[in-house]
Design a protein around this nucleic acid. Structure first.
Length: 275
DNA sequence: GCGACAG
DNA sequence: ATCTTGTCGC
């Protein structure tokens, strides 16, 4: 399989990435529901990484929204296009995800991705970014809370509490998809309201905590990564992924060759940027 | 100044 | 995300 390269002009620094978010954010559409829950198709997208080989595998799985049966699926393998920086996740995942979506034959319908949309320090998380770039209705369903405080929803499936921004806006919800199990964190991405996003999530997450879409996509992208990694030698010495992270021009400290190793330096936190 | 921080 | 053994329960 072809390895997707990093697109020309793709932001290489945090500063450039922030500028892209600011430029695209006005294009987010907050209305709409996508196909009514249980109708049409719904597509899960997910990504898996092998930083050692500088590989990223993305999967897109189209399900029949009524039966949750797999209608179509596609994968793509690419190079890591950005380091992980909280708040800039989209720049790490989107190029390969777009390639996987492009390889689909079926209509994606509603897209469900891991991570956030509106619930983002600058109101433009992965789900919103992917929606603006594709024009598709997208929602974000994250497994962990991000920067927004929340209270614990009731213990019964369907219970939820708001995720609020500093200005009081409800940017997402902690939603219980299974009795007594840790909630998921839902936010609108593009062309879908928060109400509709939660309704879609509850419809897709039945026997398990996570939506069936993300479960299928997760399994598929991991398999794609395994198969791709088998053909790429494990690099020795200076690995490609060890290149200096964009913008963080600070010289990397010397390799710790002591044995046992010294404790890692925890004094270099990343800051996603304040709104 | 020190943490916290989707995947 | 990823590194990882066993363990509890349907």
């Amino acid at each position: 399989m072809e390895i997707v390269g990093v697109p020309a002009g793709w932001p290489a620094t945090e500063e450039a990435a922030l500028a892209v978010q600011d430029a695209l954010r006005p294009r987010v559409v907050l209305d709409g529901t996508g196909p009514p829950p249980g109708t049409g198709t719904v597509t899960g997208v997910d990504v898996a990484y092998d930083d050692g080989r500088d590989l990223v595998a993305a999967a897109a799985v189209v399900l029949d929204a009524a039966t949750l049966a797999v209608v179509d699926e596609a994968t793509a393998v690419g190079r890591v296009s950005f380091p992980y920086v909280p708040g800039l996740l989209a720049f790490r995942e989107i190029p390969t995800v777009l390639a996987a979506l492009d390889a689909l034959t079926a209509e994606p319908g509603l897209v469900v991705c891991d991570g956030y949309g509106r619930a983002h320090p600058r109101r433009f998380g992965l789900a919103s970014h992917l929606g603006v770039l594709t024009g598709l209705p997208v929602i974000g369903v994250a497994k962990n809370p991000f920067v927004f405080a929340h209270t614990e929803p009731g213990t019964v499936r369907g219970s939820w509490t708001p995720l609020r921004a500093d200005d009081g806006e409800e940017v997402g919800r902690a939603l219980r998809t299974r009795d007594g199990v840790k909630p998921v964190f839902v936010s609108a991405g593009h062309r879908v309201t928060l109400d509709a996003a939660c309704a879609q999530t509850l419809h897709l997450a039945r026997g398990f905590r996570l939506p069936e879409t993300t479960r299928r996509a997760d399994g598929l992208c991991r398999r794609a990564l395994r198969e791709a990694a088998a053909g790429v030698p494990r690099p020795r010495g200076a690995s490609p992924a060890a290149r200096t992270p964009p913008h963080t021009a600070a010289p990397r400290p010397e390799e710790d060759t002591s044995w046992p190793p010294n404790p890692p330096d925890a004094s270099s936190p990343r800051r996603p940027g304040t709104i």
